[in-house]
């Protein structure tokens, strides 16, 4: 009887506590879904590891000289007690001595990070091309100006303004390799809602297929083209019967259709052939 009772008592405990554990486990799974706008301090491990390594002591919060970091409260959608910051409120000022990382008593903030420019808190994304003032043709440039890694992490790329037909647009362009995700651009965006935002790298970045090779890079690396261009096959373009496209180059005949009235558009062999096409029959 005593053994029976012991068994049932144990079963009662295992089931009751197991239920609690199940609830906690599901909550733990939820807590791994860090909201996109909550950024971890510099050097933070990937979220899965971070929640196991961080012991919620708040030393990083204390040693941040700019009060950037805060500890998540139970109602925040970030795992309770863990440090995070919201770039639009207070961005990371990228201290050279990285005091938050030094203060961390666990490896949750990687002590191997000694150069703040190597940190990856996120990646800035110019997320709204419709409201960004530079995309509207103005010279706001604020995100570019405040970027601590100016001209590397954000550049202004000039393109013609098709609306006016005579001006340039200076498009802020983020280069993820140099962006630390400090959030100063997001903080300083002059719009009501920032058009540039720091997102977790996983959200911000696309990824090429592993087998992709960029021909121009490979060519530069090898010093020459990787294919035998003399054997390159170019099929004739199919055109509607009898149609003639002025200026169109037809590789099958090696001829270019005459382009009326334009200088250098005389019929005949292409004036400057692409590489490897010069010896076409």
């Amino acid at each position: 009887m005593a053994r029976r009772q012991f068994f049932f008592d144990s079963a009662k405990m295992a089931c009751g506590v197991g239920l609690l554990g199940l609830g906690l486990g599901l909550y733990a799974k939820q807590s791994k879904a860090l909201p996109a706008l909550a950024l971890r301090p510099p050097g933070a491990l990937p979220e899965d590891d971070f929640l196991g390594a961080c012991i919620r002591c708040g030393l990083c919060v204390r040693d941040c000289p700019y009060n950037t970091l805060e500890l998540a409260k139970p109602e925040t959608p970030v795992a309770t007690g863990t440090p995070y910051f919201t770039a639009r409120n207070i961005p990371c000022e990228m201290c050279e001595d990285i005091p938050c990382v030094k203060a961390c008593p666990t490896g949750a903030l990687d002590h191997g990070l000694t150069d703040i420019n190597q940190s990856k808190m996120g990646v800035a994304v110019l997320i709204d091309h419709e409201t960004c003032l530079n995309f509207l043709g103005l010279r706001c440039d604020v995100c570019y100006r405040v970027c601590p890694v100016i001209d590397k992490a954000i550049t202004l790329d000039m393109v013609p303004n098709p609306r006016t037909g005579r001006h340039a647009m200076f498009l802020p362009t983020v280069h993820s390799a140099d962006c630390t995700g400090c959030g100063k651009c997001e903080k300083s965006c002059v719009l009501e809602e920032a058009a540039i935002r720091v997102l977790p790298p996983g959200l911000a970045k696309g990824e090429l297929g592993k087998h992709y090779r960029l021909g121009w890079e490979e060519q530069e690396k090898a010093g020459h083209s990787l294919i035998d261009e003399s054997k390159m096959l170019d099929l004739p373009d199919r055109m509607p019967e009898g149609a003639s496209l002025p200026g169109h180059y037809d590789p099958a005949s090696g001829q270019t259709a005459p382009l009326r009235g334009m200088p250098g558009s005389e019929a005949g062999v292409m004036p400057s052939l692409p590489p490897g096409l010069g010896d076409k029959p």
């Binding site: 909550y27 733990a28 919620r56 409260k73 139970p74 795992a79 309770t80 007690g81």
Partner: peptide
């Protein structure tokens, strides 16, 4: 549970650290 979930499990709801942290870092 910590081993299985990879999360410091009890800290998700621990009233001890919630009270202490709340007093020091803000209650919520």
């Amino acid at each position: 549970g910590s081993a299985l979930s990879g999360v410091v499990l009890w800290e998700l709801i621990n009233p001890v650290s919630m009270l202490h942290r709340g007093l020091i870092f803000g209650f919520g």
